[in-house]
Design a protein around this nucleic acid. Structure first.
Lengths: 237, 237
DNA sequence: AGCAAACCGGAATGCCTTATCCGATTCTCG
DNA sequence: CGAGAATCGGATAAGGCATTCCGGTTTGCT
């Protein structure tokens, strides 16, 4: 198979069983919705409204919600292929003969994916416990990244105290820079990433505070995903 | 008084000369509102609702809006003293005999202020062109930081290619980490800051992409402040 | 060609936000 | 201690959001 050419493939069969049992106009609209949503979320970020997606597609609101009953479902359909690319990026990086170069190129690639798609930037710092399409790729990418770390450390070029949680930290930091700079300074993120990568390089320049616990980070990402789909109804106390 | 034009006098009194000419209960309420708002914005971030501030204070919505006609005005009153502390932190850092230590401690202090107050974390990555209380402190802090950079570079411990825009970048990145981790991993930001500071230290480990233009960063911060006060009404095109 | 089921779009619901109106209360000064 | 004006607070407006309802239209099968 040729795994390149993700676009046409993904938009056609975004979910596995979406294939047949629909009427042709419904099938066509589903594809158009996903394409339009990709553009809208990529431009305006994850909290672009469902109405704006419907408008961009040229269909009514009801049509949108019939195909994707909750906003979460649309997000899953739109970002499934990006998550797939995200997971596959580790394989490409592992194929690099130079462990350190593979490691840095992976980080740059992932952060560039965030920069290219403001919605995806947010998605990467979230977990969607009810959406296996996104979660499984997330786990898969995590596995690959662990191997990347192991190789880079063995080569002596990655600091020993680097952990996988540091990537999550960088993704969150990068999302912050991207959402703050947006179109006004679209390349600012590159400088942040460069600062961080140079710091990751061995030898260590000093001690670091302990990274956050895995469980704590997971909890943080889970909360973020809740407040992103449900519009900020959180009044605690 | 002329009923035709009630707001010029009112806004002047609310912002500049908040001292005397009010009734005692109004004066007392003003103080209580600011205290409550400080707590609410610190806990929930900048987009906590005005209603929640009124509830926390124990006053009606109208009272809140009479004292602070726009949300922006309340933000200015609440964060003026933090901005002052932010500006004064450069003086403390300049008093440090060790230029590098003063530089790093300043960065840690500022990022700690972000972590201690989620509202302030956002404020620092924004500009409020219509609010001199915030803007002037911003400018003052900027001046002090330039001097800090000069000293640290002269001592040979700060990389020559560091610029003041890198602090803005770090503040944006830190805001991203803080808003993503929140209570779930409240110390995660310390690790990000440590990574960055170690990278700032001379000698340079490699080249960096150019920092964003000053004008571009300013524009980005200005936009952020607009979308923070006005609730996301931005429909361009 | 006909006809039912599936699908469509827009109007409507309910909850949120910032901001304003107006009748009731409370402070202040004589 | 008694007006009168400043201040209070709940109801209300205006608009954004995700989501649902319903009458009209299109499709596909016979």
């Amino acid at each position: 198979m040729s795994p390149e050419d993700p676009h046409t493939e993904a938009s056609a069969g975004a979910t596995v069983s979406a294939g047949q049992s629909k009427r042709s106009d419904a099938e066509r609209n589903r594809g158009r919705i996903i394409a339009a949503a990709r553009a809208v979320f990529g431009r305006d970020g994850l909290n672009a409204s469902m109405a704006s997606v419907a408008r961009e597609t040229g269909v009514g609101i009801a049509t949108l919600f019939r195909h994707f009953p909750r906003k979460e479902d649309l997000l899953a359909a739109v970002f499934a292929d990006r998550m797939k690319a995200y997971a596959q990026a580790t394989e490409a990086a592992l194929a690099d003969p130079d462990p350190w170069h593979g490691f840095t190129r992976y980080i740059e690639t992932v952060c560039a994916m965030q920069a290219a798609d403001r919605g995806f930037a947010d998605i990467l710092t979230m977990n969607f416990p009810g959406v296996p399409e996104l979660e499984s790729y997330h786990a898969q990418a995590y596995e690959g990244f662990l191997e990347l770390i192991r190789r880079a450390k063995n080569s002596g070029q990655l600091r020993e105290d680097f952990t996988s949680r540091d990537l999550v930290l960088l993704l969150m930091a990068n999302a912050g820079v991207l959402s703050a700079t947006a179109d006004a300074a679209p390349d600012a993120w590159r400088r942040l990433v460069a600062w961080m990568i140079q710091s990751f390089q061995a030898p260590a320049r000093g001690r670091l505070p302990d990274p956050p616990e895995d469980a704590a980070l997971y909890e943080a990402m889970r909360r973020a995903s809740r407040s992103a789909t449900v519009p900020e109804t959180g009044k605690r106390r």
